[in-house]
Structures are given as structure tokens and as C-alpha cells.
């Protein structure tokens, strides 16, 4: 398969970037999107041109490192996959594809398609945990948890922190990311003790980082590679309201 690529190139955070056109040829359909970029990069190196920088690590859809905006959608056209698990068979032969970094003010571009997502870490540091220091735990079965609650918590906990929800949102809202963590911990008895402080502190940090508000377009859920439901955002709002009023 052949493709025309339009890729965002930016030397560093202080230099303006621009789209550059490339083309790749004879790509096998079972090549992953990142492997297609690997092939392009090998060609660029052969031509003495600097390869395209992009974040990636596990390449099996779980680490959340890859973060490419592909033809207008975070992680590309296919639902519920990360860019590393997107295969070229999902595109048409000869198709033109644009590749750019996440576009959101709290995620500044570092180079080419790499952005700085440390704002997410700071939100978790503000309260996305249970304060259970090592050594203080009772027996695992001392806290029975209804299967339904455990499953719900697990649904929320499967967030990989990639930031596609923010990139998909016209307001760069991080509500789905924050909601997933708040919901995960509030559905478990272990997380109930600190639930009020948690939601207040995490939301405060989210606002401080400059993420926008939620306007219920559900683009975040549609683009989330793990299919995390916007129902968690409703839950977050309820948690926040309850904590603010008490």
C-alpha cells in the first residue's frame, strides 16, 4: 500500500512548527501505524534527514505513551485502539494521512509529535490515590467488595492516561481522565475515607493546569482507546457537588 503523509515537524517548544509532506510506498497491510512511521524514519535517515520524533513504548496498547492525532482524530480513525494498535489495513491504498501531536494548551509540544503530559501526573499527585502506606494493610479478604462494584472500579481504572480525551475535546477538558480516577477509587471501600478531599483536590489541580470545561459533546468517550464511559463524568459531578456542599 502507498500513502501520502502530512506530518507536523517542530524543532522544539520555542520554534514554530509546520506540516511537511512525505510519501511511503509498498507498506504491508499488517504494518502498524507506528511501524509505518519507523519505515519512513529509516528512509529519512538514509537521506540524511532527521527522523520524525514521536512518543511510543510498549506498542501493545497499554502504556499510554503513544499520542498521535491522525487525520483529525486522536489515535486515528479506528475506535477503541491506540495508534500503536492501529494497522494500515484500516486505511485505503493511496490515502492522504495527516499526523500531528495532541493539540491542547496544557500539553505543550516538545518536539515534532511529542507533547508534555506532566499535567496529568500533577493531577494524580493532588489526590488520585488511597493513602495506604506500605505495611499498614489488613488481609486482602478482610474487605469484601461486591463484584459489581469491583467490575465498575476496574472499568474506570483501565484508563491508560494517554490524553486522547483532552485532545478530542474542543475545550481541552480533562474531565474524563479525572472522572475515571475519582470513580475508580470512590467505588471501592478503600477509597471512601478520602473521597471528598480527593475530588476537590483533583478538580482544583485540573483547573490550575488550564484544562477547559466539559460541554457534554462526548468526543472524549468516542476517542478513548479504552472506551471509558462518560457516565463517569456524571459521577464525578455528583461527587464534586456532594463534597462541595458538605
Amino acid at each position: 500500500m502507498n500513502f501520502n503523509l502530512k506530518i507536523w515537524r517542530q524543532k522544539n517548544s520555542s520554534t514554530p512548527g509546520k506540516f511537511v509532506d512525505y510519501s511511503v510506498k509498498d507498506i504491508a497491510e499488517d504494518t502498524s501505524f507506528l511501524e509505518m512511521l519507523d519505515i519512513l524514519n529509516e528512509e529519512l535517515i538514509a537521506k540524511n534527514e532527521e527522523p520524525v520524533a514521536f512518543d511510543h513504548d510498549c506498542r501493545e496498547g497499554i502504556c499510554g505513551m503513544c499520542s498521535l492525532h491522525i487525520s483529525g482524530e486522536p489515535h486515528g480513525p479506528k475506535r477503541k485502539v491506540t495508534a500503536c494498535q492501529l494497522f494500515m489495513r484500516s486505511f485505503k491504498d493511496g490515502e492522504s494521512i495527516t499526523v500531528e501531536p495532541w493539540r491542547a494548551e496544557p500539553f505543550p509540544v516538545i518536539k515534532d509529535c511529542i507533547v508534555d503530559r506532566s499535567a496529568f501526573d500533577r493531577i494524580i499527585q493532588a489526590g488520585g490515590f488511597v493513602s495506604a502506606s506500605t505495611g499498614s494493610a489488613p488481609d486482602g479478604n478482610a474487605i469484601p467488595i461486591p463484584k459489581k462494584d469491583a467490575d465498575l472500579a476496574m472499568d474506570a481504572a483501565s484508563c491508560i492516561g494517554c490524553g486522547a480525551c483532552v485532545a478530542a475535546c474542543k475545550n481541552s477538558s480533562a474531565m474524563l481522565f479525572v472522572a475515571a480516577k475519582v470513580s475508580h477509587l470512590a467505588h471501592l471501600p478503600q477509597g471512601k475515607v478520602e473521597r471528598k478531599e480527593r475530588v476537590l483536590n483533583m478538580v482544583a489541580q485540573m483547573d490550575k493546569e488550564g484544562f477547559g470545561s466539559c460541554s457534554n459533546t462526548y468526543a472524549c468517550e468516542a476517542e478513548c482507546p479504552k472506551g471509558i464511559s462518560v457516565a463517569h463524568i456524571g459521577f464525578l459531578n455528583k461527587e464534586y457537588l456532594k463534597a462541595s456542599l458538605s
Partner: peptide
């Protein structure tokens, strides 16, 4: 055995049976 206890306390959502036990 301590690891499982520690992780449960942190809120790791391990799989549960209908009884609520691990």
C-alpha cells in the same frame, strides 16, 4: 501474601467472586 494485602489497600481492583472475596 503481604503484597496482595498492600495492593488491595491501595485500591487495586482485583477480580472478585460474587461473594465479594478475591
Amino acid at each position: 501474601v503481604n503484597i496482595i494485602d498492600q495492593c488491595v489497600a491501595q485500591g487495586v481492583p482485583f477480580a472478585r467472586e460474587y461473594s465479594g472475596y478475591l
